[in-house]
């Protein structure tokens, strides 16, 4: 089942704009390797789920895949063959808003080659350009 909030304050929200680079959630925090966005945009709950399944399917239980983004934003859509007006459409799906630099997935406990291939499988499900990254040096 795709991710979605259990409870929201407002059913419909404005479109908004994705500006500037990520200043949080932009480093590998839990695992050893991660998938980082190179562009800003929206990733739908279905795409997140498809990427997770693709990565987990390749790993076959070798490591643990963590999802670092959550689709908080509802996207509404007007029904087909409807005249304009009569108010905003009904919420249709959920998206995670990502900025350049955001980590989408992390893999923990897998060998580098397996993690790289698994993240590559997940990357094919993404609507934006992404790259694989490893942990940053820390002090």
């Amino acid at each position: 089942m795709a991710l979605m909030p259990k409870r929201v304050k407002h059913r419909k929200v404005h479109k908004g704009r994705v500006r500037r680079n990520a200043t949080r959630g932009n480093y590998v925090a839990f695992g050893e390797y991660g998938l980082m966005c190179l562009q800003g945009g929206w990733i739908t709950a279905r795409q997140i789920e498809a990427g997770r399944i693709a990565a987990n399917h390749f790993l076959g239980g070798e490591g643990k895949v963590r999802i670092r983004v959550f689709p908080h934003k509802p996207v509404s859509k007007k029904p087909a063959e409807t005249r304009m007006g009569k108010g905003k459409g009904e919420p249709e799906f959920w998206v995670a808003v990502v900025r350049p630099g955001t980590i989408i997935y992390e893999i923990q406990g897998a060998q580098e080659l397996s993690a790289k291939t698994a993240l590559n499988r997940a990357a094919h499900k993404m609507p934006i350009r992404v790259k694989m990254v490893s942990r940053r040096p820390k002090v």
Binding site: A2, M4, R7, V8, K9, H10
Partner: peptide, 23 residues
């Protein structure tokens, strides 16, 4: 080294989220 935990795939379709009353 942990034992491998097999994730269970939920089969039920999700319902629309509840709106906070009074919002």
């Amino acid at each position: 080294v942990h034992d491998r935990v097999v994730e269970e795939e939920p089969t039920e379709e999700g319902e629309a989220p509840e709106e906070t009353p009074g919002a």
